[in-house]
Write a protein that binds this DNA or RNA. Structure first.
Lengths: 194, 194
DNA sequence: CGATTCTTTGAAAACAGTCAATCTGTGTGG
DNA sequence: CCACACAGATTGACTGTTTTCAAAGAATCG
């Protein structure tokens, strides 16, 4: 089994060897090839997915068929529709692989079991959800307060490792822009530097 | 002491009378008059604030001095800068009263103590933070995917109790619009219905 | 009443979206 | 190895939406 998870957990929490093994033993590995879906709207999200390799997009489709990216998730990120996963109701979101991707999966009952038996794991997730909420609020702020190019600059700062890896039209979608507008922003930026 | 908290907690969690009393006994009431601040950017957020009466805005100031509303909080809502409260670092946000407002306050150590001694309280907050994260992601989606008037309609649906209570220019700020634009959207809506 | 605060209006300018076409690079199958 | 298809990026002209600025009209409060 990949040790990406081990490194991640050791980095983020203090777990005993036995606890690590319990967590690992409940995980099921899965491979999602580029362009394949891990989840579709209407389906119920059944797993917590930890990405050990590759990259995915979490997105929704608007009534007019346009795709809007909620988030990207590469190595050491979690990709799932929490709302569906925790409520058992159908998902509003799609999750698809942007590259050949490897994930580790746990069902929600398995996760609950881990929470109850491993306090440090419970604490880790409290922290993660809490941070995710803060990050989400920050994104709301930049989205409502900034112009298109401020949003793009913020994205560059926050996710430098994603640029070059993710097609620009998907970044545009994440930022709430059309691909053409993003092209023009980048063009203007280049002009500025000369 | 106000029993708004009691009703809220009984509604959201199963707590014994003794647990309720513990929670209440640690709370400090405070009154914030209309237009007064509960928190300013640069200060450290020291309390979890539960609103028992009134209404507040949580906002940030952009470099150009413009105000952008992160959220509104009326009765039975929590208003604080979580990032500052949990990290101990200075806040980026302001919190101000839109009406004369009464809150109950707990320090973070008090909250941690409650989490550790009252499992149902811990579970309640896990749920709250989790839901808040889902709501935040949903708001991001509507913000990046919708037009100004779709965002406004969504707001009406989601927070019908806030309209009429909160000045329109603040709602515009929440939606990432200018007040003039919101006026025009509402005008168009009215025209539509005739 | 006078002073704020809030809302509306109009005209012009800035901004972002749409549509259609082209260009680029990549990879696949013949 | 070439030809073709395909995904991605760019460009130009045009349209539509939103902001900006300036002003004035309601509403509320002391």
């Amino acid at each position: 089994m990949s040790n990406a998870l081990r490194q991640y957990l050791n980095d983020k929490a203090s777990l005993t060897e036995a606890e690590l093994q319990t967590i690992e033993s409940l995980a099921t590995p899965a491979v999602i090839k580029k362009r394949q879906h891990l989840l579709r709207a209407g389906d119920i999200c059944r797993h917590h997915n930890f990405i050990t390799k590759g990259c995915m997009k979490v997105y929704r489709l608007a009534d007019d068929g346009s795709e809007h990216i909620i988030k990207f998730a590469a190595e050491n990120w979690w990709a799932n529709d929490r709302e569906s996963l925790l409520s058992g109701r159908p998902s509003n979101s799609y999750i698809a692989a942007l590259e050949d991707t490897e994930v580790l999966q746990w069902t929600n009952p398995q996760f609950e079991h881990l929470f109850q038996t491993i306090p440090a794991f419970d604490a880790l997730f409290k922290r993660l959800v809490s941070r995710a909420l803060d990050a989400s609020q920050n994104r709301i702020y930049t989205t409502i307060s900034g112009t298109a190019d401020e949003r793009y600059r913020q994205f560059l700062q926050r996710y430098p490792d994603l640029i070059g890896r993710i097609p620009l039209h998907l970044i545009a979608s994440y930022l709430g822009l059309t691909r053409e507008t993003l092209t023009r922003i980048r063009q203007a930026e280049r002009a500025e530097k000369m």
